[in-house]
Nucleic acid binder design. Sequence first.
DNA 1: GTATCCCTTTGATATTTGTCAATGCAACCA
DNA 2: TGGTTGCATTGACAAATATCAAAGGGATAC
Lengths: 252, 252
Amino acid sequence: MHANVKQNVVPLITPGLKVACSQCNLRELCLPFGLSDNDMSRLDHLIGGGRKLKRGQHLYRAGDRFESIFAVRAGFFKTDVLTEDGRDQVTGFQMAGEILGMDGISTEAHTCNAVALEDSEVCLIPFVELEMLSSEIHSLQHHLHKVMSREIVRDHGVMMLLGTMRAEERLAAFLLNLSQRFSARGYSPAEFHLRMTREEIGSYLGLKLETVSRAFSRFQEEGLISVQQKHVRIVDIPGLKALLAPPDGRIG
Amino acid sequence: MHANVKQNVVPLITPGLKVACSQCNLRELCLPFGLSDNDMSRLDHLIGGGRKLKRGQHLYRAGDRFESIFAVRAGFFKTDVLTEDGRDQVTGFQMAGEILGMDGISTEAHTCNAVALEDSEVCLIPFVELEMLSSEIHSLQHHLHKVMSREIVRDHGVMMLLGTMRAEERLAAFLLNLSQRFSARGYSPAEFHLRMTREEIGSYLGLKLETVSRAFSRFQEEGLISVQQKHVRIVDIPGLKALLAPPDGRIG
DNA sequence: GTATCCCTTTGATATTTGTCAATGCAACCA
DNA sequence: TGGTTGCATTGACAAATATCAAAGGGATAC
């Protein structure tokens, strides 16, 4: 299966796309976090160059042999898991500075698909070499562990969302999460462009696209956001946050 | 918060409970997997001894300082995340050979609670020392990464379950997963004792306890299982598996 | 040994979300 | 620039699950 070799070979590593970690404005969000200049330059040598992807292209597919993890340099990705019986679950959306592909370590093969939702760029980080270097640079090793652990904690947050929240709470949590991540990257926390469709949001949130659309409309009616297609402006951040409280706080 | 110091101090490390990895019948399921005899004995020296917990006791709580990960030697645990607004999500159930506590690496503090669901025993694995040793023993380092990655993949499976499955599908998947894990440990895949309540199952599966109970009853009516309280016997494993197919296979 | 408490089961009803269907909007391609 | 196509919105209705309520069963503690 996944013998889609041609399609996978098209977006080759782009020579000359290499940007040193030490020069990268994402380094504080990314793998080099906390490294000394010297250690960072050792990491530079390991990064296998970059790769550009057009919107819609796969960075990897479930079943692909695992060789590298990836750092998003620019753009926007989704990851999703597809089962034999046709279920499709979006497991995350990744933006600049975030690490993709750690699911592949356990079985030496990727277990999900990663797709660019807009034209994007990633850095390739060959994993065998990363392990070798991280056994020499303790802070790199520890930071790698933190990145993996953070992914586990993030996943727990998604479980919480899927397991305990209602449709509007899920969407509110989703928008606040995006807002916070855009903000951390120097973009407006209040106004942004959604790269994904209602269906992809729905898949991530465990909802049908119509439910997502209705929740957007309702938020707009209530003056919490202003939304037109993929353009979102959050008008009332505290109001959105208040939606996440109710479980027993529904006294009023 | 979580100033429950007394309660946490009670279950001290039990001296003399130490069992060498090399002597442990769980080693093929656990962290020592794939190590040479020599490397395993180095790991032995690092394991900080064991700890016994009575049913209901916490192994750690959200907010506790992170120092070790834990390997379940015997017994059964649940982990759950509690939010300020009162939501409670069970994120997993852990049995012998499984590793607990990796959520704590990212922030140096545990982010969830781990509770023994029956009298249990764990091995303490001090994380700083594990990192030191794993930078010397490549296969240990790599296996640690695999264990963390496996946790990420497992979490994706739970997301799939919560995001795409209906109540009975979730319970079927849950039972089959338990069955498979018991089987891997030499227990019957068909007959076992649930250590958790309907409410805990419900929390894990994103359902209310009544819905879980009704699904159990329905499986029994249909001759898929036989269930009385916490005792479960799976009568028709293929039948349960068939429940997981339908998304478009509902042609018949 | 017995009483208590928690867990489980089951029923009736309410709420939420999904499904089906139609229409509208926007971007993209020719 | 006009048509086509995919995405989004909205409505009416159906299905799934939650909620509320009551009663039974087991395990545990005293």
